[in-house]
Amino acid sequence: MSVLRLFTGRTASAPVARERLQILLAHERSLRGHPDLLMQLREEILAVVSRHVVLDPDKVIVRMDRGKHVSTLEVDIELPNGADRAFASAG
């Protein structure tokens, strides 16, 4: 195969496919017990934040990037003006 690749100048795509599948399936299998984990996390994070500031649920963006070793859950909450003062009084 490697000799063939020398001539065709192509790198095989199957290893890429294998790695993508391994990462994806590892995540899907781990979530099989509680499929709504992500949703639950979001709800609880929002509940904690909204205990201190008023937030608009439409201004909350949740992004996910599932990696091989670590995944990132990014919760981007846009706070209305004056929210910092609310923080200070709450704290």
């Binding site: 992500l38 949703m39 949740v62 992004r63 990037d65 599932r66």
Partner: peptide
């Protein structure tokens, strides 16, 4: 885009998430 899926069609149908999200 398989690593970036957070919400889906069903979440939008059920009102759990907004379309832009």
């Amino acid at each position: 885009a398989e690593r970036r899926v957070v919400f889906d069609l069903i979440n939008v149908v059920h009102g759990v998430a907004k379309l832009p999200q």
